[in-house]
Amino acid sequence: MSDVADRVKKIVVEHLGVEEDKVTESASFIDDLGADSLDTVELVMAFEEEFGIEIPDDAAETIQTFGDAVKFISDAV
C-alpha cells in the first residue's frame, strides 16, 4: 500500500473510530464506516491538513469511499 493510503487510513481510523481492516478500497465513509455528513466534512479537513492541499467543496462531494480519497489525494500531491 502506498504511503498516501497509509496516511489516509490512519486519519479515517482515528476520526471514525473504526477497525483498520474495515477500511477497504471500496468502503464508503457513510454507508460502511458509520460517518454522518458532518464527519465527512471533518475528514476532508483532516486530509487537507495532513497533505497540505486544498480540496474544493465540489470535489469533496465526489469523495465517498476510502479509494476515492486515496485517488484524489494521490493526484493532488
Binding site: 458532518l38 466534512v41 471533518e42 479537513m45 487537507e48 491538513e49 486544498e54
Partner: peptide, 10 residues
C-alpha cells in the same frame, strides 16, 4: 475559516 470544525457549533 476553512479550518473551523463542523462540530464547533453543535
Amino acid at each position: 475559516p476553512r479550518r473551523v470544525s463542523p462540530f464547533f457549533i453543535p
